[in-house]
């Protein structure tokens, strides 16, 4: 007789990856849109360059959120029970926190839109600050959701939430750049503003990518197994889409500020980085599960 198997499945699939990506993007889009109201004239009023994006950004953020909700809910085996994490709140579970923050975040968006149409600056500021914090919590909690799995070594490190926040910054930047470019509103100031953030996010992503690479090579057996899987199954996603297209090329494009601040260049770079932001998440989520399938 040969090996009997109790086969196992990887619990999280495409829905979750897309959700993680979109909710992070929604969060960062909100942060950009709320920036003028939140930061006002700090940093020499740099955030003011986002004023033209304010309303449309809020709407985009809301739309992304509205896409996310059914994605998240239908991914559940029991969609009708989507509110259970709130009524049976479990404080050690990131999903519980996420479920709580998610509707609050939605309320903030609506509140902000409401405030901005009513030109209520105070409310805009409150919902902007609160919403930005909640917006940041979106990629953060999805990262934590992986990180708290103490038994999955690929996930169980504190850089994951950081990475997810940073990746959201890339995709959020892409949303702003694409929207504003297509509306003909990506002016020099806005480009400079976005360039700073894209630069930061790509730089940090690059650093984290290298760190991850070291861990995967020098880490425990499980991490090395993940390395195996990545190179075998997700080689193209990892090296091609994430590293080359998602990090190296955009980084090179914006490395020289003069060039990088050109609206079109910046937008292309931001879009590429968003691709990387998606595939990096995908690789980490999938490979992290596959290491355990046969255990």
């Amino acid at each position: 007789m040969f090996e009997y198997m109790g086969y196992s499945i990887a619990p999280w699939g495409l829905d979750i990856v897309v959700y993680f990506f979109l909710i992070g993007t929604a969060g960062m889009t909100f942060v950009y849109a709320a920036a003028p109201a939140v930061f006002g004239s700090v940093f020499n009023g740099a955030a003011k360059s986002m004023l033209p994006f304010q309303k449309v950004g809020m709407v985009i953020s809301l739309v992304l959120l509205v896409i996310c909700l059914p994605l998240l809910i239908t991914d559940l085996g029991q969609p009708g029970r989507f509110f259970y994490p709130i009524i049976y709140f479990h404080w050690t579970s990131p999903i519980s926190w996420g479920s709580l923050f998610l509707p609050l975040f939605g309320l903030c968006i609506i509140g902000f839109i409401f405030a901005s149409t009513n030109e209520n600056a105070g409310l805009m500021r409150t919902t902007g600050i609160l919403g930005s914090l909640l917006a940041l919590s979106m990629p953060l909690y999805t990262g934590l959701d992986l990180m708290v799995n103490q038994t999955r070594e690929l996930w169980n490190n504190p850089t994951i939430p950081l990475l997810f926040v940073i990746l959201s910054m890339s995709s959020g930047t892409a949303v702003v750049a694409v929207t504003q470019l297509s509306r003909g509103q990506l002016n020099q100031k806005a480009s400079e503003f976005l360039h700073v953030f894209l630069y930061i996010s790509l730089g940090v992503t690059f650093a984290l990518f290298l760190a991850e690479w070291v861990v995967l090579n020098y880490g425990t057996g499980e991490e090395q197994q993940a390395w195996e899987i990545i190179n075998r199954q997700f080689g193209f996603s990892y090296w091609g889409l994430t590293f080359l297209i998602g990090i190296l090329i955009p980084l090179a494009m914006i490395a020289v500020p003069k060039l990088g601040r050109k609206p079109t260049v910046l937008t292309v770079a931001a879009v590429l980085s968003a691709v990387g932001a998606y595939t990096f998440r995908e690789v980490l989520i999938y490979a992290g599960q596959l290491t355990q399938i046969d255990f």
Partner: peptide, 12 residues
């Protein structure tokens, strides 16, 4: 149970 499968992900 909402079948979010978090526990599956958590069980080593």
């Amino acid at each position: 149970c909402i079948a979010c499968r978090t526990c599956i992900a958590a069980c080593p």
